[in-house]
Simulated assay, not measured.
Amino acid sequence: MATHLITGAGSGIGEAVTRRLHARGDDLILLARDAGRAKELAAAHPGARTLVADLADPDRISWAFSHQPMPDRLDSLVHVAGIVDLGPIAEMRPKTWHQQLNVNLISPAELTRLLLPQLRASRGQVVFINSGAGLRASPQWGVYAASKHGLKALADSLRQEEHAHGVRVTSIHPGRTASPMQAKVHSQEGKEYDPSEWIDPESVATTVVTAIDLPRDAEITDLSVRPGR
């Protein structure tokens, strides 16, 4: 049975990935920001284990893990959690930069660092849910795009560094996906939100599962997913 650690499992793409892997009987470890959220995730996905660490505070992730049982091996680490706060660069203060860089880039780097021994043990895979903004930046999206461009650089470097250990690394770049984050983006843009106009999270989950299940003679390195409507 494969073991997967998933961040952002409570909604959107992360929830869809979690449901898909849970339904086929894989062993799941769901990262939660606090004990209350961990209890909710465990109730929603019976049999799943939880770990508690706040991605907003990457400096304390190692400490948090040192106080919890850790898996011996991992077949995949799926980074889905992320935050977005739009606005012009001229108005973005350091606090906004730190918030998005911590959750979207620094914490994924720290989680990966801490879990590499388990991933190497199983010749596993790291999957980063990036964004179209990780390939091109638009007005008002500068801070978020910077965090996602950095995440792609992290993945590209990690892929080459870990090749000798048999660890595969995949970046998936979805376009706008129907999710609570997308609802927030529309609110910040002052636009009406219609989830039917955007990618279903289940479609992105399909790409994640495909990357994980790909035979070992191949590796999906970068994959862009765009709305088909």
Rank of each mutant, 00 (worst) to 15 (best):
residue 75 D to A: 06
residue 72 D to W: 12
residue 115 L to G: 08
residue 114 L to D: 03
residue 111 L to A: 02
residue 83 I to A: 06
residue 124 G to A: 07
residue 123 R to T: 02
residue 69 P to M: 07
residue 126 V to C: 04
residue 75 D to S: 06
residue 87 G to F: 04
residue 110 E to Q: 14
residue 126 V to E: 05
residue 71 P to S: 06
residue 114 L to S: 04
residue 124 G to Y: 02
residue 70 M to C: 09
residue 121 A to Y: 03
residue 116 L to S: 00
residue 104 N to H: 05
residue 127 V to I: 13
residue 82 G to R: 00
residue 104 N to W: 13
residue 94 P to M: 08
residue 104 N to S: 13
residue 99 Q to A: 15
residue 82 G to S: 01
residue 120 R to K: 12
residue 81 A to V: 13
residue 104 N to G: 12
residue 112 T to H: 06
residue 76 S to V: 11
residue 79 H to A: 04
residue 125 Q to S: 10
residue 93 R to Y: 00
residue 109 A to P: 00
residue 109 A to V: 07
residue 76 S to L: 00
residue 88 P to N: 08
residue 105 L to H: 01
residue 113 R to L: 13
residue 111 L to T: 06
residue 117 P to A: 09
residue 124 G to P: 01
residue 113 R to G: 09
residue 94 P to K: 08
residue 124 G to E: 01
residue 86 L to E: 06
residue 76 S to M: 06
residue 97 W to V: 08
residue 84 V to E: 10
residue 73 R to E: 11
residue 75 D to L: 04
residue 108 P to M: 03
residue 93 R to C: 03
residue 127 V to G: 05
residue 81 A to N: 12
residue 71 P to D: 08
residue 103 V to F: 02
residue 98 H to Y: 15
residue 119 L to G: 07
residue 113 R to T: 11
residue 111 L to K: 00
residue 69 P to C: 13
residue 94 P to Q: 11
residue 111 L to R: 04
residue 85 D to S: 13
residue 91 E to P: 07
residue 96 T to A: 12
residue 118 Q to T: 02
residue 81 A to L: 07
residue 121 A to V: 09
residue 127 V to M: 02
